[in-house]
């Protein structure tokens, strides 16, 4: 049967979605903190937020890279 493949799909879905959501949420949170008043180092927080967004984008691109058969040949 295909239980193993089904499990693979479930696992891959969970890992991919959780990674993207976690990174993006951290980015959103850091942006929010950076925008706060009386914040000691908004610049650092903001750049960290952008780092999170960037990593999130990279994760998506890496996922696509794994899927597209053109690259794995």
């Amino acid at each position: 049967m295909k239980w193993l493949e089904l499990l693979t799909v479930a696992g891959a879905t969970l890992i991919a979605a959780a990674t993207v959501v976690t990174l993006y949420s951290l980015g959103v949170r850091l942006t929010a903190i950076a925008a706060d008043a009386e914040q000691p180092s908004p610049g650092t927080k903001r750049s960290l937020a952008y780092l999170c967004f960037g990593l999130c984008g990279l994760a998506v691109l890496f996922g696509l890279y794994l899927i597209i058969p053109y690259f794995s040949k």
Binding site: A10, A18, V21, T22, R29
Partner: peptide, 24 residues
Amino acid sequence: VFAPLIAGLVAYVCTRLAYALTSR
């Protein structure tokens, strides 16, 4: 049968995650 279940479960976890990470 399983695709909606898997997607639903993952969406549930991710929504929890998103709200937990951004609640201030």
